[in-house]
């Protein structure tokens, strides 16, 4: 059993945890501050609501008579005057939107900035001030393969794997603090995995109006109308 100096606990282990917690809170607040100015454009709201109306029509068509349904279908799908066949404003196309609208790009940049920069800064801080400390002992056994990862900066070949360096303690905090932060801040905070997913499908928040219109139009045209109200009397009598 290795004896560790209590000063290491007081001046390395607890400060790292405390700093991580405060930085988590700060990151959340900064992100909230930056997020505030998002206003949707009226055109894209119109397009979204048009699609939603069509979806409602498909979902509840059973309550409409054949004539009423056809009339509404014509409103959406008519070849000349249909709402889905109009020329779509090119700015609703996400690729072009990216080109023409720099605010979207900078928005994404600030999001990434609040995400990545604190992580790099804290990582560098821990690495700079606390490298070479054996900070803690994890209470579960680990295989030798973890040695390189967990004891970075501590080059002692005979040291047991369960003793970890300050950088590993930092990573342990990084992952473990998520739940606690969520508890403290009362809402969903940054989830690292979620942000990564968002980066994968870039611009998924924006609406690809032309394609969405086409898909919705196809679905509406394919749909078989079934007037359910006519059968209600029968059903009630059963």
């Amino acid at each position: 059993m290795l004896m560790l100096d209590p000063n290491v606990r007081n001046w390395v282990m607890i400060p790292i945890t405390f700093a991580m917690l405060l930085i988590g809170v700060l990151r959340h607040l900064v992100a909230k501050l930056m997020r505030g100015s998002a206003t949707a454009k009226i055109k894209s709201i119109q397009a979204k609501q048009l699609i939603q109306r069509s979806q409602y029509l498909r979902a509840h068509s059973g309550f409409l008579s054949r004539a009423a349904f056809n009339q509404r279908k014509e409103f959406f799908c008519d070849k000349e005057k249909g709402a889905f066949c109009q020329k779509v404003d090119p700015s609703l196309n996400p690729q072009q939107q990216m080109m023409s609208d720099p605010s979207m790009l900078s928005d994404m940049l600030t999001k990434n900035l609040t995400m990545v920069v604190p992580q790099i800064v804290t990582g560098a801080w821990v690495n700079f001030f606390f490298s070479g400390f054996v900070v803690a002992k994890v209470p579960f056994p680990l295989t030798q393969k973890f040695k390189l990862m967990l004891q970075r900066g501590v080059d002692l070949s005979s040291l047991d794997v369960t003793y970890i360096s300050s950088l590993s303690w930092y990573f342990l905090n990084l992952f473990g603090m998520q739940g606690l932060l969520q508890l403290i801040l009362g809402e969903k905070t940054f989830d690292d995995t979620q942000v990564m997913q968002q980066q994968m499908s870039m611009g998924a928040g924006g609406l690809d109006a032309p394609n969405a219109f086409k898909a919705e139009k196809d679905q509406l045209e394919m749909m078989q109308h079934n007037f359910r109200v006519a059968k209600f009397v029968e059903l009630a009598a059963k």
């Binding site: 606990r9 473990g176 606690l180």
Partner: peptide, 18 residues
């Protein structure tokens, strides 16, 4: 699980290791 491991390690170290 990660939260559990963090606080397990923290408490274990504070009480038993140092």
């Amino acid at each position: 699980v990660t939260t559990y491991i963090l606080f397990w390690t923290l408490a274990y170290n504070s009480v038993h290791v140092f």
